[in-house]
Design a protein around this nucleic acid. Structure first.
Length: 737
RNA sequence: GGUCGUGUAGCUCAGUUGGUUAGAGCGCUUGAUUCACAUUCAUGAGGUCGCAGGUUCGACUCCUGCCACGACCACCA
């Protein structure tokens, strides 16, 4: 053996050795299954993924305990995320998604993803991950689509899926709807305009409303005041005129109006404000959409038609001022606006037909299950987080207006006499056309041409909605156009536990054991997985959930590209070895806490790696050439074995409780400061037998193996400590005698 | 504004049902070295355990209040 452990010369060799022995395939025994949270297909390894070491430790430990341990990896298509990255590349070439029909764009993104995919698995192998790579699957694989379609169909039949117009958070920039979860709030300072609305029967008198969005007055359908507000008591039911366009709207009362704010009178714009949408629904007021999906005004005064919102606002203000409608302006008004979590642009609340999942019953099922600890959370506090989230969770919009994803398997029947389907398509000359299908058909455009160049279909919902068919393939009984919306990524990845296992494995491996992931996707993902699992299989997807809060640098600051403090785990592996990295991720990182990744810490653990190597080398040298008659007194050996038993029990019980950091610390401390500093010194002084030390080494290598697989297996192979067990990875876990 | 959580050494965190001098890793001090390991060993410094009360023979631990920070939720046009 070399005097110093050089990870570079061992790690690659050992990993190839395991693979050649098919060491990651499940053996016989009680099944133990972990599903890897699928990383983005085109991602490369970052510090967050390195924490999957948690899974690897558990799998390796259970494998050694004699379980049929299986760790199934996968890749996620990550719809919105990926399309965002792709479109950024497109714009560098001066192009946009509008230059392509749906299918071509999809194919191009698919190529783009394929080019970059799989790299992350190779990087995970460098960390020593013992997943069954041959079972890896991708969220766009056929069998995944099959399951997702079936679930959708079943939910539709069971009445959990509905289509409705709804006020959604629409990002004009990215061209898609965002779920509430994807929305960020940002503080802004904007002018607050006080605008006079004259009374219809007496234009010299008026009621004043306050708004930061004067351009939306053309979509107003009412002015609301609080019923308890004495100032407006006599005005209720009266009509006022909208400035500039002089449309009549009523004054209504609603308790949600804050008497203290502004003038106490609120303009109601249901098509472009979530609160107003609710109020309008309550009072059965229709809504008037004045902004289209490109963020341009469609109604109002002629000067603003076709203009973008920001411009329209300025023009509107100017006109209002000219006609003296503005009572005053509060220039320093601080309020919060909703922005897109991805591109940070301000969102436009917009009314749009969408597919929804009715969640009330389903979420109560999840809540019951979580409350009853059918799924346990480590640390426990996340149980409360989950329940609190379920309480406020409302219907889930699952359609996304992006191409990169699983197309919602719905077909709209084209009725050539109805104006209920609106399309965007590239004609045979690659020119973008948009309008009613009926009108195109009347002009002699063939439905095939529309379908071929199709970018987007928007079918109205409600009473005049077209007939629909739920089917993967195009129905043949007439003219149909496909739904172009795709599923929210979480709709498919929420079914991850249902698609990863083979049919027969649902008998043996379901529910799976544990899911380890970053706590910020508790709501997005974990809640949905439990939901789909209960709905489809009447069973939880996993028994335990292990969470960590975030990955931070040495100073405890969250790693992010914008802060420039990102540490690439691969660099640390190059420098100090995978074992050192793994150990430093575990040491001092209890469930739920921050994961600190710093060069200093990893270096410290590299020292430990070397310590293990050297101690093993020293013990084996002495054991192979024991000095005659120098075996120490057996009483001291007995004390040694007793302590060794205690360590075995302690490490095992900590692992059982998912106290991975405590287990790591126990084995680290005892190996270094007891076994090396005390016991080896004793043996040198003939106070302990080399035989006992050799047994101890055997035990420590096994206890260390889940945490530091490479160095331990290297030693095992070099020293051939046990003839019965050729691979440390498959050896038996030490039990206290 | 609401809910939950956190506050222990310079940093990140342990501290089990209240019980002697409160611990670890990294960092820092000083020293050792022909010794398996300078990738080592030993040693030391550093904590009013957020603040103020209370319960108790005894509180980092239990209770109350306050302060600070964080997460999530809801957000007033």
């Amino acid at each position: 053996m070399d005097k110093t452990y050089n990870h570079k010369s061992h790690e690659e060799k050992i990993y190839a050795f395991w693979e050649s022995k098919k060491a990651f395939k499940p053996g016989k025994g009680t099944p133990y299954t972990i599903l890897m949270p699928p990383p983005n297909a085109n991602a490369s390894l970052h510090a967050g993924h390195a924490m999957y070491t948690v899974d690897d430790i558990l799998v390796r430990w259970k494998r050694m305990q004699g379980y049929s341990a299986l760790w199934i990896p996968g890749l996620d298509h990550a719809g919105f995320e990926t399309q965002f990255v792709y479109e950024k590349n497109l714009s560098k070439e001066g192009k946009s998604r509008m230059d392509y029909d749906r299918q071509t764009l999809y194919d191009n993104i698919f190529k783009f993803v394929k080019q970059n995919s799989g790299l992350i698995f190779e990087q995970m192998k460098r960390l020593g991950f013992s997943a069954d790579w041959e079972r890896a699957l991708f969220t766009l694989d056929d069998n995944v689509l099959e399951t997702v379609f079936k679930t959708f169909e079943k939910m539709y039949k069971d009445g959990y899926v509905y289509r409705d117009t709804y006020l959604v958070n629409y990002c004009v920039h990215d061209g898609t709807t965002l779920a509430d979860l994807e929305v960020k709030h940002e503080e802004r300072k904007d002018p607050l305009y006080y605008i006079n609305y004259p009374f219809a029967n007496n234009p010299n008198k008026f009621i004043t409303v306050a708004t930061v969005r004067p351009e939306t007055i053309f979509g107003d359908v009412a002015v609301a005041v609080n019923p308890k507000d004495k100032r407006y008591k006599d005005l209720i039911g009266k009509k006022v005129l909208l400035p500039l366009i002089e449309r009549e709207i009523p004054i209504i009362t609603d308790e949600s109006v804050d008497i203290e704010f502004g003038t106490g009178a609120l303009k109601i714009t249901p098509a472009h404000d979530p609160n107003d949408f609710e109020v309008a629904k309550k009072h059965s007021l229709s809504s008037i959409s004045i902004i289209d999906l490109n963020g341009r005004l469609t109604k109002g005064i002629p000067e603003i038609i076709g203009k973008k919102v920001s411009q329209a606002r300025l023009i509107t203000i100017e006109k209002l001022q000219e006609k003296k409608y503005i009572a005053k302006v509060d220039k320093e008004y601080l309020h919060s606006v909703t922005v897109c979590y991805k591109c940070k642009h301000e969102l436009e609340p917009t009314i749009m037909p969408n597919w929804f999942i009715k969640v009330k019953e389903l979420k109560n099922l999840v809540k019951k299950t979580v409350t009853e600890d059918k799924v346990k959370f480590y640390p426990k506090k996340y149980k409360n987080h989950m329940i609190a989230w379920l309480d406020v969770m409302h219907d889930w919009p699952i359609s996304r207006q992006i191409v990169w994803g699983i197309r919602i398997p719905v077909w709209y029947k084209v009725d050539p006499t109805a104006s209920n389907i609106y399309v965007w398509y590239l004609d045979s000359k690659k020119k973008l056309k948009q309008g009613n299908v009926r009108e195109f058909l009347e002009k002699g455009v063939k439905i095939e041409e529309i379908e071929k160049g199709l970018q987007k279909v928007s079918a109205i919902s409600g009473t005049n909605a077209p007939d629909i068919k739920i089917s993967k393939e195009k129905p043949t009984d007439g003219m149909y156009l496909p739904e172009t919306d795709t599923f929210d990524t979480w709709f498919s990845s929420g079914q991850w536990p249902l698609v990863t296992l083979k049919d027969a494995e649902f008998e043996t491996r379901f529910p799976t054991q544990v899911l380890g992931t970053l706590s910020d996707i508790l709501k997005f993902w974990i809640s949905r997985m439990i939901m789909f699992s209960l709905y489809n299989k009447n069973e939880v997807p996993f028994k335990d959930v292990y969470l960590w809060s975030m990955v931070a640098d040495a100073k405890g600051v969250k790693m992010s590209k914008s802060k420039g403090n990102v540490i690439n785990p691969l660099d640390l592996i190059d420098k100090y070895g995978a074992d050192a990295l793994r150990m430093s991720l575990m040491y001092g990182t209890p469930a739920g806490s921050k994961v600190i990744l710093s060069d200093d810490k990893v270096r410290g653990m590299r020292n430990f790696t070397n310590k293990v190597w050297n101690a093993a080398r020293f013990v084996s040298l002495n054991y192979q050439n024991p000095k005659e008659g120098k075996y120490g007194p057996s009483a001291q050996d007995q004390v040694f074995y007793k302590k060794l038993d205690e360590i075995k029990s302690k490490v095992t019980s900590e692992l059982e409780k998912y106290n991975l950091s405590a287990a790591a610390e126990t084995v680290y401390d005892n190996f270094w400061h007891w076994y090396c500093d005390v016991c080896i010194e004793n043996a040198k002084n003939d106070n302990l037998s080399w035989r006992a030390l050799k047994d101890g080494l055997n035990v420590f290598l096994k206890l260390l193996h889940p945490f530091m697989p490479f160095v331990t297996e290297s030693i095992w192979q070099e020293l051939k400590l046990s003839k019965e067990e050729p691979l440390l990875i498959n050896s038996s876990w030490p039990k206290a005698s």
